[in-house]
């Protein structure tokens, strides 16, 4: 009878394996980072992680990542919508295009974006006379982070939209809902959790991104230096402890943000299900 509770046997075995696996892949390397920082006194640690240059880099990294993830949430949703709800020639091609930022080596993305947005590039040569500089400014950082984050939103929202049958929208319309009502009352609540997940993934990916950003950022101290670059900079000086200290701060902030987003998701999930 106990078998009916769970179709697949071996809960304790699989849980044991999961914990072992997560420890091996995630927890042990991360705790090594934490242990390394214990070589510092708290004051030293605090001094390193609150140095003006480091603080400026947190602002850029987290700020640009947030903006990029928000842009991706809006336009990623739009892209997913178009891909699910319409058929048009070349749709397969566009669908494949979405995944490209996943597969492309980030350095290639960085170099390509810089080439296009630099003052002598296709887009840059057109923007610069208008007084808009993208490459080698914080704006450039945002562009690179938007590029690498796009697939996360599209690919999380797409399957949910596919499951959401067009009939529900027709039903809503036949019951007298206008377009905005259909969207805000029917479609949006259904895709909201997926959208939030996509946003969180894009955001997390952007925080850790290094390869594509360093080419387009210009890397000016206090202006366009991202935190991962500062970590590398410290490593280049064989300052392992300093590098880990900054890394630990990034880890803590990222974990708190992701935890908050997950919490928000759980909360909305509970609210929407109880509303049904």
């Amino acid at each position: 009878m106990a078998k009916q509770k769970n179709v697949l046997p071996g809960f304790s075995l699989s849980l044991g394996f999961t914990i072992f696996y997560l420890s091996l892949i995630v927890l042990i390397p991360l705790s090594a980072a934490f242990i390394k920082t214990t070589e510092l006194s708290f004051l030293e640690f605090w001094h390193i992680v609150t140095a003006p240059r480091v603080v400026a880099s947190y602002k850029l990294t987290f700020g640009a990542s947030l903006v990029a993830a928000l842009i991706n949430a809006v336009f990623g949703l739009l892209t997913a919508w178009v891909l699910v709800r319409y058929t048009f020639p070349g749709k397969k091609f566009i669908d494949a295009l979405v995944d490209l930022p996943f597969a492309l080596p980030t350095a290639v993305a960085g170099i390509a974006l810089t080439a296009v947005y630099a003052g002598n590039g296709w887009i840059g040569s057109w923007l610069e006379p208008q007084g808009i500089k993208v490459a080698f400014t914080p704006t450039g950082v945002m562009v690179a982070l938007t590029f690498i984050g796009l697939p996360f939103v599209v690919r999380t929202v797409q399957p949910v939209l596919e499951d959401l049958e067009a009939e529900t929208e027709e039903a809503a319309a036949s019951l007298g809902a206008n377009r905005w009502q259909t969207f805000s009352k029917i479609i949006f609540p259904a895709i909201w959790p997926a959208l939030l997940t996509g946003f969180a993934l894009a955001f997390a990916r952007a925080i850790g991104e290094y390869g594509s950003v360093i080419f387009i950022a210009g890397n000016m101290p206090m202006v366009s230096e991202i935190t991962p670059l500062l970590i590398i900079t410290k490593l280049e000086q064989y300052d392992y402890v300093g590098a880990t200290a900054v890394a630990v701060v990034m880890l803590i902030i990222s974990f708190m943000l992701l935890f908050a987003i997950n919490g928000l998701q759980w909360w909305t999930n509970r609210n929407t299900t109880s509303a049904h």
Partner: peptide
Amino acid sequence: HFSDGGTFDQIYQK
């Protein structure tokens, strides 16, 4: 010159 807070860092410190 190149350690944290060295002369290079001071150029960019406001």
